[in-house]
């Protein structure tokens, strides 16, 4: 080592360091794009798709390949949808289904989170139920409906059981994947800072696993929604009220194609809407804080 006041550092190290800092600091996001342009960029492409789909549908209908009761005109379906929406019935269906899905999803999160943590961190538990969790994820939740109906009858319990069996595996798996993807250097850094098991989980493990966990939640929501629809379509009863699934099954029962298509549109609409309004913004905040997710 050179003596403090001589040696290699003759070139004003402070100035060099300051220059490096100025050059190295990444540009903090150049001028922001205006709001209308961002909206145009995200909203226009899906609108184009929608218009195209309706156009093809209209053309197919005009060519009259299929009888009217199999392929109604877009306008007929639009009329049905409009009638349901203006009468407020559609809102009732949506409310019945969405409040079930949200409640079930929250219960699912509460159950799946500890399961995911234990599976990720305890080797024996992972070996014991890890494969089962992955397997359950690929089992269509409709498969649970007959069993649930036999166990609990056509009751709300049946619907919630099916929904939970659909959502818990994917939420738990998401958390496990999130924890598995933590760079090993971070827990090591935590350990040398003196973080024990508990402090390590709180300050390092959980925040580091958050992006994966969030992806799991998003998928868990999709699974909840799908399972709920399966349950509602099969287990229909006047006592259960009419959700979107029951509305769809009504259409099948009455052989009324416009109702069937309207129901499908509404189911899609709710699923996509929750994803866009709840999960997308959450994900954007979490990823942006970590310098990830440039595509969002």
């Amino acid at each position: 080592m050179p003596p403090p006041d001589a040696g290699v550092d003759t070139v004003e190290p402070d100035a060099v360091a300051a220059g490096l800092d100025a050059l190295d600091t990444p540009d903090p996001g150049s001028s922001r794009t205006p709001v209308w342009r961002r909206i145009a960029r995200t909203a226009v492409p899906p609108l184009v798709t929608l218009v195209l789909v309706i156009g093809v549908w209209q053309a197919l209908w005009a060519l009259a390949f299929w009888p009217e009761f199999k392929l109604p005109a877009p306008a007929t379906v639009g009329g049905e949808l409009w009638a349901r929406l203006t009468s407020g019935e559609a809102l009732g269906f949506i409310w019945t289904s969405v409040h079930r899905a949200v409640l079930g999803f929250l219960i699912g999160v509460a159950i799946a989170t500890p399961i995911g943590l234990v599976v990720a961190k305890v080797r024996f538990v992972r070996a014991a139920i890890g494969p089962l969790l992955s397997g359950l994820q690929s089992l269509p939740s409709v498969a649970w409906v007959p069993a649930a109906v036999l166990w609990f009858g056509v009751t709300p319990t049946t619907i919630y059981v099916v929904l939970l069996l659909g959502s818990i595996p994917s939420i738990a798996n998401g958390l496990v994947a999130g924890i598995d993807q933590i760079p090993p250097i971070l827990p090591r850094a935590g350990k040398v800072m003196g973080a024990g098991r508990l402090a390590g989980a709180r300050h390092i493990l959980l925040p580091a696993a958050l992006p994966g966990y969030l992806a799991g939640l998003k998928q868990g929501w999709a699974f909840s929604w799908r399972s709920l629809m399966a349950a509602e379509i099969i287990a229909t009863s006047p006592d259960l009220g009419t959700g979107l699934g029951a509305y769809l099954d009504n259409g099948r029962f009455l052989a009324d194609m416009p109702t069937v298509i309207s129901a499908i549109v509404l189911i899609l609409f709710v699923g996509v809407g929750i994803e866009l309004l709840v999960f997308r913004p959450l994900e954007r905040v979490v990823l942006a804080a970590r310098g990830l997710g440039g595509a969002l």
């Binding site: 250097i185 850094a189 935590g190 040398v192 800072m193 300050h203 925040p207 580091a208």
Partner: peptide, 28 residues
């Protein structure tokens, strides 16, 4: 307790620079 500096910075990506420096003190 000896402090360790690795080849990578190993900073917590969700914390700001100052919260990262603060972390060992928070844990302590």
């Amino acid at each position: 307790r000896p402090a360790v500096m690795f080849q990578e910075a190993a900073l917590m990506p969700w914390l700001t620079a100052s919260r990262n420096v603060e972390l060992p003190l928070r844990i302590a």
